[in-house]
């Protein structure tokens, strides 16, 4: 598994309510990812909700794109990343 940072842009902003519906929406995404062997680790969202940076594990960039398509999510840029921990050297 390779780790990827996936940038997504939402023109209207991404609204996920913090209730049952929001939870269901997230679980739907998890299900859709599973069809392509992709794991959503977590995301960072800009204050205006127009851009998200999602950390994903997956076999290759194509799987990330196919999962996004299944879930109806946009993809702007995929970057392969490694973890860098500031306290690693202490």
């Amino acid at each position: 598994m390779t780790r990827y940072l996936v940038e997504r842009n939402f023109a209207e902003g991404l609204e996920i309510p913090t209730d049952d519906r929001g939870a269901k929406a997230c679980l739907n995404v998890v299900d859709g990812n599973a069809q392509h062997g992709v794991t959503w680790v977590h995301s960072y969202v800009s204050p205006d909700h127009s851009t998200t940076y999602c950390v994903y594990d997956g076999p290759n960039p194509e799987a990330i794109r196919q999962a996004a398509e299944t879930n109806g999510l946009p993809v702007t840029k995929i970057t392969e990343v490694r973890v860098l921990d500031p306290y690693f050297y202490h």
Partner: peptide, 14 residues
């Protein structure tokens, strides 16, 4: 730069 989905359309449809 990118507005919405990978294809430009107002509703962000893929």
């Amino acid at each position: 730069r990118p507005r919405g989905s990978s294809r430009e359309n107002p509703a962000n449809l893929t």
